[in-house]
Each structure stands twice: as C-alpha cells, then as structure tokens.
Design a protein around this nucleic acid. Structure first.
Lengths: 258, 258
DNA sequence: AATTTTAAATGTCAAAATGACAATTAATAA
DNA sequence: TTATTAATTGTCATTTTGACATTTAAAATT
C-alpha cells in the first residue's frame, strides 16, 4: 500500500466511522488504479522572416539522452499541466507570457519505453527575435527549419506533424500568427508568414485587402527599408481589437482545404 | 522504491553496465517524479428532435457517491485514453463506434479531493434513439436537457460548459451534427438541431439553401408526416462526400460569433 | 367536393465578399 | 535623368450572403 492509498483509507475512516462497506469500496475502485507519470511537450514555432521554424533541445536524461526532442518535462505535484508547460518554456527560452495552447494528449501505453508516461502536447508561438536576445546555451536549444528537422525521440515526430496541422487550422480562423512577428512588422512579412504556414502562394492584392478589412492593423509612419528600395510601411496590432476579435473568423486563405 | 522505479534501475544496469553516473541520473530525473491517476470524462450530447441533451450517471464510488456526474473512468494500464473513453461509453450506453473527440485535459492539482487525478475530457455525439433501444438501468444513466441539468461533481460543470462551446465551434465548421440524427432525417429537424446548438434562430430559406449547396444530403422518396400535413422529405447523408468533406468549412450559422 | 389550414419548399434581389488580373507609386541605383 | 525593384492601390465579373415573400402539398374542415 502506497502512501497515497493509505491516505484515502484514513480519510474515509474518519468521515464514515460506521460504514465498513464503504471503506472497502474505496479501496477497490480508487486505490487499486494504476498511476502514471504525466509530462508536457511543447511544439515551439518561430518565424525568422523567411521560414517557419521549431525549437528543439538535446534531451538531458535517459533514455535517448542527447537525442533531439521537444521541450518538455514532468508535471510537478503542485502545478497544472498548463503551469508545467509555462515553466519548461521559461526554463528553455527565458521567455514568459508565450502564446501557449493545449493541443492533444498522447497516451499510448508504450510511448515511453521506460515507464508509462502520458504527455500533454502544447503548441507555442514565439517571436524568434525576442528569443535570440535571451539565448543561453545551458539547455542546448536550437532552431530548425520545420521542413529540415532532425529525427525526434518517442512520438515527438507525430506531435510535430499534428501541431503543424493544428497551427494551419487555427491560423486560418484566428489571428494567432501575429504572435510570431515582432511588434512592428510589414504586410509583406505577414504574407510570407501566412504562405509558409499554409505552404501556398497568396495573391498580394487580395491578401492585403483581407488583412486591411479586419481592422486589426495600425499603420505606422516608419518604413522598413531593408527589403526594397521603396520600403514597406510598418504596422502594429490594434491590441484592443485583437483581443475583442480573437474569436472572429478571418478566412485569410483562399480556397482553404484543411 | 516502487516496482516501477526498480524496473527502471534494472533496465539501465543492463544497458549501461559501466556507467554508475547514468544510473544515478535516471533515479533522479525519471523515478523521483510523482505519479498520478489519469481518468477520462465524456460529455455525451444527444438530440431528441426538440432539444439538446446530455447523458449523466449517478456516480458509483466515493467521494460524492450517488451524485450526478459525467460518464467517466480511470485509464487502465493497457489502454490509451481514447480506448478508455470508448470503453466507458460502451459500458454506459451499450454503443460502439460513437463519434468521440478529445477535447481538453483537466489537471488542476486539487480537482479531485481524494488524490491527484488528471482527467482527459471528451465530447461524444450520439443518436439518442439508438441509445434508448439499448437502455439498461444498470448504470443509472439519464438524459437531461442541457439547460436544465443537475449540479455535477468536481469540475464537471466546467467541462460541460467548455464542451458545449467547443461543440458550437466545431459544428459551425464541420458537419458533425449529423452524428446526433437518425439515418433518415428531414431538413426542418436538422435546422432545429442547429438552432439548439447555436441558441439562435436561422432563416429557413437561407438554411436550406446552404445545406443543399454542401452536396452532403441525398433526398429520399419517403416523407415524414408526423410534423405536418404536407410532410417533410427524408434525407440521408452521402457518406462518401461526408468523409471527404469532413474538414471543409460549412459556415452554416450566419453572423457567427464564437 | 370545395375550402381552409398548416408547415414545407422554393423564389427574388440588392449588397457584400471573393478571386483573377493590371497599373501606379516611392525610393534607390545606375 | 533614367532604370530598377518591390510596395501599394485599383478594376471587374462572379459568387455568396442576408433579408424578405410566395407557392405547394397534404390533411382537416365545412
């Protein structure tokens, strides 16, 4: 009998002094159940202005030590899975307040060869530039092109595939891709990001019309001259409208097939 | 040291005979982690032709025995959470092959007062008529109007709220509501279901135009005379198109706000 | 048998959104 | 001054949408 099970027993002894039957029932139904490790794994997406990337780390524990893996960790006793995901993200990127979304649970009995572990998959979107300023090599994290990533441990490969699909889905309906851009960005930059995520070319004219019609962008006076002679105007998000319209549909991808 | 932890130790003794350091690392990082119970809870939606309903059961174990709860159970050692959800659904409804979708994990440290338990929330859609033929009273399951349900245990109340929101979201984009209708159904029936789920009135003419334009329905020669003198034609799903277009957007709700 | 009743099915039209395509503009480089 | 390059803005036919009205089929009533 483990400590946990003992605790249950005492708890109901106290509450139900006169019911032996009840104590018995608890022991069967609740305490006899198997316990598992619970982990979180984060698929961290970034955008370098040209391509979609993911952040991977070299795993620091057995099994599969030194193999590339998603950023993850076990869920501690005093934290929720969401808490755990935020914690490991901060540990590995130095960033707080990252856009983080619970995605799917991975729970095949033998997905971890050592011991049964269920993993809650998250996907995270971060501004790659923010990260680079805070980079420290303590955790051997590294950005990879999404289409040129190393083999990953366990079922992490599947997690990346699933998360990418979900990112595409979500980004078609909600303005989440801004999370991967700097505060000031240009329309051409934004379009490249959409094209990368959806693996498609978008007509420049129709794209900017749709983006403008959302009313989410505020045009700045400054221009980004790095990409062309003419320069492209910077925009920033209208945060009030962003929050208010987050659930609104955008449909930025023509002839969308998911 | 529990049996599980011992197992890990031996596993790496064997694989890494010459590395004491490695064995040490495993014990810290892997075995020292807390283990939790993992459960599934299913929000089962049904439609009786007039109103949206959910299926609840009287809980058969402490704590909160005899209180109303979602259909749930612990994840067994040899099954995935998906397996577990299908198992408990079959046990409580007699039905197999139910539409089932992983929804969200509920993992606040103190959500279960006895012992830390994480629960994977699922939502399920079933044809309420199919169920009624197989009903047995062994598990005290009962249908409740979604808007007139009893108080639920733990965080099940929140689960229902979340699942309902998700159902609405999903149903706006994908043809999932057919899962709650009999094989033969009429357009007016379908419309009432959409109205129930979205808590709104839809214009009859525009609705049938949109539904027709999906190409998902096949008109039958038979009519349902129960609702009117004229009778409404039965339709059935074009299963090939249903499967092929499942991911396609429908946007059946005008002025949708999620 | 003709008429009434009821809900189902179909029709109209102006406004908005979409997709395909081309011309103009602002800045630097030659 | 001109050429070059990418950013920006524009046109138009087609489709989709939302608001609204009429017709139709069958049973019930007179």
């Amino acid at each position: 009998m483990t400590i946990n099970n003992l605790f249950i027993f005492l708890y109901f002894r106290k509450k139900n002094k006169h019911s032996k039957e009840l104590n018995h029932l608890i022991m069967i139904e609740y305490s006899g159940q198997p316990h598992y490790l619970v982990a979180v794994d984060c698929i961290v997406f970034g955008f370098d202005g040209e391509h979609l990337k993911i952040l991977l780390v070299k795993r620091g524990l057995e099994p599969e030590i030194n193999k590339w893996s998603l950023i993850g960790g076990f869920v501690g006793a005093q934290e929720s899975p969401d808490d755990a995901a935020n914690r490991v993200l901060k540990k590995n990127t130095g960033l707080e307040g990252i856009y983080l979304e619970q995605h799917q649970i991975y729970g095949e009995p033998n997905r971890d060869p050592i011991e049964r572990t269920l993993s809650v998959g998250y996907f995270a979107l971060i501004d790659i530039n923010k990260y680079q300023t805070q980079i420290n090599d303590d955790y051997h994290a590294e950005w990879f092109l999404i289409n040129d990533r190393p083999k990953l441990i366990f079922d992490h490969e599947q997690m990346v595939i699933d998360a990418r699909k979900k990112l595409r889905y979500k980004a078609a309906l909600h303005p989440i891709l801004f999370e991967m851009l700097p505060k000031k960005f240009t329309i051409p930059q934004l379009q490249i990001l959409f094209e990368e995520v959806n693996d498609t070319k978008i007509d420049t004219r129709n794209f900017s019309r749709k983006i403008s019609s959302t009313g989410l962008l505020i045009k700045l006076t400054e221009k980004d001259k790095s990409g062309s002679k003419k320069g492209a105007f910077y925009f920033k998000l209208d945060k009030k409208k962003y929050t208010a319209n987050f659930q609104a549909f955008l449909n930025l991808i023509p002839n969308l097939k998911l």
